[in-house]
Nucleic acid binder design. Structure first.
Lengths: 334, 334
DNA sequence: TTGTAGGCGTTATCAT
DNA sequence: ATGATAACGCCTACAA
């Protein structure tokens, strides 16, 4: 790799002159500029970013830390982030940290070592010791957490969707349609993000004076996806008093539900309404198309990235917690 | 940010000693080690990656350049890449360059400036002036291209799926099932990657002595996705002599085809077989489940990443072109 | 308009 | 076992 000195030698000037031309500052005689440009071209010279960064202190790089390997669940968020990163002259480094706690911290540390200007951190679960580390780190570099792993008073910026009110709104929508026996299929694992959705469901029932029936709540494994939805729908529809609407904590379950209802020749939405959660692309391609509660992931990503840049540009502003409402996407199933 | 000197001062030693401890090399008295570790902890010291990189010359970073914003089309490839990057101590920087030619080169350049150790480059189309730049750049930093944009004799490593033979194999499969009137829905835009699939279709016909009927070939817009497949299937099935099988250049079209056949009450696969291309996750969730030709994108990513590391570790090895076969995934529609 | 010199935070060499 | 010193490639006063 050729350096600024090689260029200087070749052009017969000092490295200072080359540097000035690189940064576009200072005055140079056209003839000199010509010579130097020529030399750069011949050498295929590309300045070393690290030397520049070390000198100037800013890497123009933001890190995005994901808990999982790239999967389509994150693609919308990433697109949202990218929309704002792209136009900013920054570069984004995307890493999946895995769910392992140590690993997450290692990555965080590694990003700081690489002098990123800011970090977008995504994690499923609150891990106490990691929170402490996040708290300490956030004093050195702007961090925005995209999830529900922090308490209100913990001074780190956060962006997330209000799953509680979104689910509540979805349930209310069904109730307004006259459905009062509403089944709910939730995850068996209890992380904050999905638990609060369940709470929203419960609240909506209560607000409408509907008696809670534990038989209408089923748990399913996140891994089994569609199959799980299928199975649980069967159980629900075989109750002595089956539901007239089924909500699920995630679209994948809802797809299974629809599958079952079709097989059982139960009309959707006439006999049973189905309400998903997430609005994965698939919703629109099914028939019937799935009505669902959308988190607006693209918006989550965009909002988080904007917030991060806000903090990068003005480190004094302090943290902010942003709760996004999400949206009901009404299609064919409810 | 505290530096190595701060640590040295606090511990009452020289920065050399601290450096030695950092890298784990050299001998240090336990007491000294203790002191230094203590100082590092108190200062929350994280070494500057840039200074290290500048000194050592290796960033342990590979760049992945995609033509589009993150969308689920790339998630499998990215996962494959990550599987090999993850265990290597490297970090990956993912950028979407857009389809714009200038932009692509700017990003390439930026990655070199950031001293990445290698680049995985993904692009739709061959752009002559960019190829030259790629060629020049590949002398400075290992590059693996994941696509069909390079000629055989151009000395840059490449990994891609043999869409020609894969489609040929898919067509042969249908022919072996006794389907000789095979429709084909292709893209209207003509990029190398999709054109070669069409060639594979033609070859299979020829090899089996089936006369080519241009009426059986339809073109559709990539944007309109499912709708397009739906429309073109209608046209095909209204021919005086309709096909007994329909192949598509991409799964999205095939989904539309299935939609149409269902609506027209045409039995799949008894009356008409459907064969997609890509194996998007959705294939498995449809009913009937889509039979398709899988590129094995995860494998593409993994292979490309492995090849890149090979070149990083041993810059002498020279370029390699790898053609992956892909696989037929037999499900319900054929 | 151009050049000289010093420093960014680290590692590596060579003494002590 | 530890430390002084010179790089790494660039930027930036300041001097000429």
């Amino acid at each position: 790799m050729s350096t600024i000195i090689d260029v200087a030698k070749k052009a017969g000037v000092s490295k200072t002159t080359v540097s000035k031309i690189l940064s576009g500052k200072g005055n140079v005689r056209p003839a000199t500029l010509e010579k130097v440009n020529q030399a750069m071209k011949e050498l295929d010279y590309i300045p070393s970013g690290f030397a520049q960064i070390m000198r100037t202190g800013t890497a123009k790089n933001i890190a995005v830390l994901l808990p999982e390997q790239f999967n389509h669940g994150y693609s919308e968020i990433l697109r949202g982030i990218e929309m704002v990163v792209e136009s900013s002259g920054y570069i984004m480094t995307v890493c999946s940290t895995g769910v392992n706690a140590e690993n997450q911290m290692d990555y965080l540390r590694e990003m700081v070592r690489r002098q990123v200007d800011g970090i977008l951190f995504f994690s499923y679960a609150r891990i106490e010791k990691n929170v402490n580390y996040l708290l300490r780190l956030s004093k050195k570099v702007p961090i925005v957490v995209m999830d529900n792993i922090l308490k209100e008073d913990e001074p780190i910026s956060m962006v997330r969707v209000d799953g509680y009110n979104l689910t509540r709104k979805a349930a209310q929508y069904l109730i307004d349609k006259g459905r009062t026996r509403i089944g709910y299929i939730r995850y068996e694992s209890k992380n904050a993000a999905t638990l609060e959705r369940y709470e929203g469901y419960l609240t909506a029932l209560k607000e409408n004076g509907i008696k809670f029936d534990p038989k209408l709540v089923r748990e399913a494994n996140i891994e089994s996806h569609i199959t799980a939805g299928f199975e649980q729908a069967r159980v629900l529809m075989h109750l002595s008093s089956p539901p007239t609407a089924i909500m699920t904590v995630t679209d994948m379950f809802a797809i299974g539900v629809i599958d079952y209802l079709r097989e059982a020749k139960i009309k959707v939405p006439q006999e049973v309404c189905v309400m998903g959660f997430d609005d994965i692309p698939l919703c629109n391609w099914l028939s019937p198309k799935l009505t669902t509660a959308s988190q607006g992931q693209l918006n989550v990503g965009r909002t988080a990235a904007k917030l991060l840049f806000e903090q990068i540009q003005n480190p004094e502003v302090g943290f902010r917690k942003i709760l996004l409402p999400g949206d009901l996407i009404i299609r064919d199933t409810a």
